[in-house]
Design a protein around this nucleic acid. Structure first.
Lengths: 126, 126
DNA sequence: CTCCAGTACTTTATCTGTTACAGTACTGAA
DNA sequence: TTCAGTACTGTAACAGATAAAGTACTGGAG
């Protein structure tokens, strides 16, 4: 008889992909921006490449994050002076942003440990 | 002049603790139940101990998770026959639950890798 | 020349998990 | 008797994620 994998019978990640990165979006955007200035769509492409298509963060989610981060003074923005093509809004991380980013990375490491312990996940580093 | 730490000036984890575990609650509950049957409040205490007070998952969050898991057939419940004290609702993970749990742990490992890469977090294992 | 895919940004409505808060009910210790 | 702890439930509200749709430009394929 035909084999059925667990994931066929019990899809786990359909609705999950969303919530697994939830709460990390702002931190991820700040991580990209600590490497240097960038504009909205480029940040989107950078993250899409890093997540490899799967688990991708949607455009609308990111643009919402940009607004949130700017509202909280963690990033600053300015319009580029593109003469042709779509106008681009560039983002730059602020000092406050850098500080919060450092805190969030620390929080991630803590959270990571807690979940690893709860799920009894062994170290996966080769 | 008095020192001010980053966390004083820019509180990072006030609203975050909530969202960092978000999406993992169901998986964490199933992790506890794969160790054996348990009842609602006990699962709460187990998780509270593991998270060490910080980052704790609130009672209401867990009871919501129990209902969700039971609705989806991932856990089963029955009332204990306590003769005194509060009545206890016991939970048991189902085969479907075990399968989804395995998938979620795999998803967690993937997500973990992605976030580590994006945040450029090095391996923290001693 | 037209159509389409890609770039680039925006807005609105909706969904879901989390939580504050409140309530019920029992027990044992101060 | 009061309070802390055990044990469960329900409701309202919030915030982040996203589907969906729209605007506007560019370059290539047919």
């Amino acid at each position: 008889m035909p084999e059925k994998s667990d994931s066929d019978t019990f899809p786990a990640s359909d609705a999950f992909a969303a919530d697994l990165l939830r709460g990390h979006t702002d931190t991820i955007v700040m991580a990209v921006l600590s490497q240097g200035e960038s504009y909205g769509f480029e940040i989107f492409k950078t993250i899409r490449m890093a997540t490899g298509g799967d688990h991708e963060i949607k455009e609308a989610t990111l643009y919402a994050a940009y607004r949130r981060l700017e509202r909280d003074g963690l990033v600053e923005s300015y319009w580029g002076d593109e003469t042709q093509g779509g106008r681009r809004k560039y983002y730059r991380i602020t000092d406050a942003g850098r500080a919060v980013f450092r805190g969030n990375v620390a929080a991630w490491i803590t959270t990571r440990r807690i979940i690893d312990a709860l799920l009894d996940v062994k170290d996966t580093t080769p």
